[in-house]
């Protein structure tokens, strides 16, 4: 299980590297959204490993409503660029 967590953190670090490197704002937005989903999944796995459901509840909330804000940002950005 800890090996799995290690791999998941590695995947999140990969995305953060992309965010740091790219200059195009759309690439950054996509990578940030992906980081949000992945961190939610890491939370769920951590909650299963520690057998502490409160962490998992936060993870479920992040997964279900966390993307809404990024979606709003994408719409805003489209209006700004036009």
């Amino acid at each position: 299980m800890s090996g799995l967590l290690f791999g998941m953190v590695l995947a999140v670090l990969l995305e953060i590297l992309v965010v740091c490197r790219r200059t195009d704002v759309w690439h950054r937005l996509a990578a940030f959204a992906s980081v949000s989903t992945k961190v939610g999944m890491v939370m769920l796995v951590v909650s299963v490993v520690r057998d502490d459901w409160m962490v998992g509840l936060v993870g479920v909330i992040v997964l279900s409503v966390g993307n809404g804000s990024v979606m709003l940002l994408a719409n805003l950005l489209q209006g700004v660029e036009r």
């Binding site: 959204a33 989903t37 997964l63 719409n75 950005l77």
Partner: peptide
């Protein structure tokens, strides 16, 4: 199960929104 459902729907629609917004710009 709720997380599974909302994850699949949100992420898919989110991909569409990102693609459509960047293309429109």
């Amino acid at each position: 199960l709720l997380a599974l459902l909302s994850l699949v729907v949100w992420n898919t629609i989110f991909g569409y929104v990102l693609a459509a917004c960047s293309q429109a710009a």
